[in-house]
Design a protein around this nucleic acid. Structure first.
Lengths: 191, 191
DNA sequence: ATTTTGTATTAGACCGGTCGTCTACAAAAG
DNA sequence: CTTTTGTAGACGACCGGTCTAATACAAAAT
């Protein structure tokens, strides 16, 4: 049962940290929304940092499943897989009134300079994300579906970084213009 | 003397919050590095939030001076003003080993969902930044120095958002590839 | 059926730090 | 001399992450 409890705590932690950030969420809040007694925390995790790192990996893993469901969907052309992914994300952000954004992005700015372990895992997970996009772009270039001659690795890095930038601007301005602009620009980059 | 003390506190606050984030910096740390007693702090600021908002405005103001020194420099063509600005920023980030990034970007992700007052001022200051770039781009388009037919407002938004995204990736990966990629891409956007 | 053993789980205390208030005092201005 | 402006830091109430000692409980042994 230990593992299911851990996963439940991680799920709750993901939600809370997405909304409020790592430093702004206390163990108390995590544990009582997860309905786990306070004393148990250090039975499941060796520290709050350990917990945070596991939340990051957990969130990344969940996200990768979503990415794959789009980017490896053989029913669509590679270019459309990517664009429909972003279109759907944008719709979600509009529904939730431009909150949360990306936990990896949020933690990248909040934690990378403070704890190397965070920078390391964040960089690693972002690289995994980028690789998924890169493979899809490469596939599109090979088949002629994506005409751009720029290296797939660079296009994928630009897409990911620009997307994080758009989410940042979205969170501050609480509107969708940055997202719409990103999408329009992404369409050009994949042409 | 009121103004010099306030500015000193804001300067120290800017430094600390740039490096560690808002929630990860306590009043105690601010006060003892600024060598100002607590009693003075609450004489000048009505709360930590008030302090944070003023730090954001202070940082933005300082940044705008730097922007203007590049973007309104009549000795260079508009396109070169923009590119040299980013080139110089990149050099600085490489020197300081890819830390800190942009206080406005950092606070945008950390604070926007938690306190509306932060989202408001952050959005406002980011808009001011964008307007400076927009004016320079417009000037370049009018003179033919920047051939792109895309609206200056959109180009400037893309540049700013993509720049913040590049800084985010830089902080996590602790290397300059995201910055170099951004610059290369910016050169294309201004062609 | 009862006791023993060993592990899974939790209660609760700990200490340090959080922000903010308040009172006393010094310095400067009028 | 009085009032304003700013300094000084103790204090309170609370919350942070952490840890140890105690419990709950299941399986094994008697």
């Amino acid at each position: 049962m230990k593992n299911t409890t851990i996963n439940h705590i991680l799920e709750v932690g993901t939600q809370l940290i997405s909304k409020k950030g790592f430093h702004n969420v206390g163990l108390q809040e995590v544990l009582q929304t997860a309905k786990v007694p306070k004393g148990s925390f250090y039975y499941y995790f060796k520290s709050k940092d350990d917990f945070g790192l596991q939340v990051i990996r957990y969130y990344s893993e969940q996200s990768i499943k979503i990415f794959a469901s789009y980017l490896q969907n053989q029913a669509l052309a590679p270019r459309d897989r990517i664009l429909s992914f972003f279109q759907d994300r944008i719709a979600i952000y509009k529904e939730q009134e431009f909150t949360e954004g990306c936990l990896l992005g949020n933690c990248s700015l909040e934690m990378s300079d403070i704890k190397v372990a965070f920078a390391d895992t964040l960089a690693q997970e972002l690289d995994r994300w980028q690789a998924l996009f890169e493979a899809c772009i490469q596939e599109g270039q090979d088949s002629g579906n994506i005409p751009s001659k720029k290296e797939a690795g660079r296009i994928s890095a630009l897409l990911l970084n620009n997307w994080e930038g758009a989410l940042l601007r979205m969170k501050a301005s609480k509107d969708g213009t940055a997202l719409d602009l990103f999408l329009e620009h992404a369409e050009e980059q994949l042409s």
